[in-house]
Write a protein that binds this DNA or RNA. Structure first.
Lengths: 339, 339
DNA sequence: TAACCTTACTTTACCGACAACCTGAGACTT
DNA sequence: AAGTCTCAGGTTGTCGGTAAAGTAAGGTTA
């Protein structure tokens, strides 16, 4: 049996197609009896409207698109789940595109597969792409860069201040040699956190050692390996604290330190960023700067929906972190080389 | 400026719309010079075909839909990332729907928003829904149940054998009191693993203690809490081994044991399932049954694409696990209560 | 009772792309 | 010279909905 269309329902119910359309869409111009009858026939035939026809006519897909290069890690699933829920509240669906292919991205955006766009992370959307999207009035929210114009906004996390505050906290505890575990340099958050960290070191006159900036790629396992390598080289004179670019890195770092027999926080303190769900259950529980992911997700979807509805122009919103002190940080041990 | 359509390109290039269509879709009936000219005009106007029009006419969206209630945890992101990549290879996109609303799910499936469907987990897709989908010839692959008919297949993990083998391994080490940390009972994998575990206990004549089946919900934090509660009750006579329904549960369990001063594997052994990326970096590194997630993702997408292309009817494929012995399991300590 | 509303639909145009079929010009056949 | 091909592209119908405009029957008003 081929797919049932609105025409089949109309024929079966003995009415015109627009009557069926009106009945299904609750347009209040029909005789209640007719409406009932049509709905009953539609139900009996298991009729479900074809969304492609609907979309073409209305110009709306009722879908928001989330474009990202990766979904790895707790940050993403929290973000995606919360955004999905929030979309559903507004009657939208969320289409998650995990890809690095700019062709794919642009043809889905400009081809109107979605009514609004959420963009995260190092997607290499450049000035020209933004120009084109702006001309087409594509409603967009960026999560990884501050931006705003008539049809585009952003909801970002103030990573610079977060990095600064975390570093300042460690300095306040008495740490003088603090390493930073970085993500990749194309990641806005990673760079900002590092800048904040460097600013704090400068402010307190602590040495900026190039070697103390470690590439961890924001992942647990790659950080684990990076720290093991780092310990092999710097084992004789380890920093008394590591500031990790995110919680996953912090955990990987702690695992590596433990594997080499160091105690956290007894010998070394480790601080992360994000406060992902697991952070509090880790051993030791992580000291971290809380990134209000759920809030970011909700603000993003709300802002985008309001732009689509024409109720709002693009805004640049910034969320601030909150230092959560748990068990992975402590004053440095007496024997620590504080030079 | 309103959106550029194929008509605008046709007018600007001084040709008909079908000539534009033919030029863009590489239909080889045009004078090369005309084709070049049309493509140049399209490029200049930044023309991108509207996918809704395309989809309506062709009846194809070039999208596969992944329907799930959750994306939490390493299992999902590995699955999603691998499926996305594999879709891209076939020229498809992957639309991830995170929802529990069956209305939403069915209207997206039956409304033809996607060309093929991948379903995971306790979605409560019942016989009736399957009937309707079958009548509509919706190409579908299930990841959480074995199923096959003309248009529907499945790619599942043999969780029963995995559970059986893991339990047998612990029994072989000498463990006599083994607890199982379960997910929820609506989850096929969780139930199957538990059945395998119970079968092994029965086979070796070990006692089946109802109390030793713990609800951990397949999450790290809820397992952590569940095990803490369990220890409070059974602390005087703890099992010598825990078989956790997945790696996240195993980690939560280990964290809880450590928090109460137990050593793993010195005092208690813990075994998980999946072998997620982090498992090997955990301390202690997890003994686990490897679930070939990437393989499942690839087989799923390939199978679905072949069904869509009409090259294949629904098959029920099963993947088997592989026991990976690492540091979280050991022979039971002498003092363990082996009664 | 003619003009005018309502009510309750039906007819038809349209969204943007694609594709089946049509056409007009020149080349080739017989 | 009439008929037939081929080439290169144009015309038009179509996918499945929605919505603006049209209409027929009955009721209301002046």
């Amino acid at each position: 049996m081929a797919k049932i269309t609105i025409r089949d329902v109309a024929r079966e119910a003995g009415v015109s197609i627009s009557t069926v359309s009106n009945a299904l869409n609750d347009v209040d111009v029909l005789n209640p009896a007719t409406k009932m009858h049509v709905l009953a026939v539609a139900e009996r035939l298991n009729y479900v409207p074809n969304l492609n026809g609907k979309m073409l006519k209305s110009g709306k897909t009722m879908m928001l698109g989330f474009f990202t290069t990766s979904v790895s890690g707790p940050y993403f699933y929290k973000l995606i789940e919360t955004m999905s829920r929030q979309c559903e509240r507004h009657g939208y669906g969320l289409n998650v595109f995990v890809t690095k292919d700019k062709q794919v991205i642009m043809s889905n955006i400009l081809g109107r597969r979605v009514d609004g766009v959420i963009i995260y992370e190092e997607l290499k959307i450049d000035e020209h792409d933004i120009d084109v999207m702006e001309k087409d009035k594509i409603k967009t929210v960026f999560l990884d860069r501050e931006f705003s114009n008539d049809t585009m906004g952003s909801v970002t996390f103030d990573s610079y201040t977060a990095g600064y505050e975390a570093a300042k906290y460690l300095i306040g505890l008495g740490h003088k040699r603090i390493a930073y575990i970085s993500g990749v340099d194309t990641m806005f958050d990673s760079v900002q956190r590092r800048e904040g960290y460097l600013a704090a070191l400068r402010e307190y006159g602590l040495p900026l050692d190039e070697d103390y900036i470690i590439q961890g790629y924001f992942e647990e396992d790659s950080t684990f390996n990076a720290i093991k390598a780092f310990i092999r080289v710097h084992g004789h004179k380890l920093p008394s604290a590591f500031l990790a670019g995110n919680d996953l890195s912090a955990m990987g770092c702690i695992e590596a330190l433990k594997a080499h027999g160091y105690e956290v926080p007894g010998d070394v303190s480790v601080v992360g960023f994000d406060d992902v769900d697991i952070a509090r259950y880790f051993s030791p529980p992580l000291t971290t700067v809380r990134n209000p992911i759920a809030r970011q997700a909700i603000l993003t979807v709300d802002h985008l929906v309001r732009m689509i509805q024409g109720k709002e122009t693009g805004q640049s919103q910034t969320l601030t972190g909150e230092l959560i002190v748990r068990g992975s940080s402590h004053v440095p041990p007496d024997h620590a080389d504080q030079g």
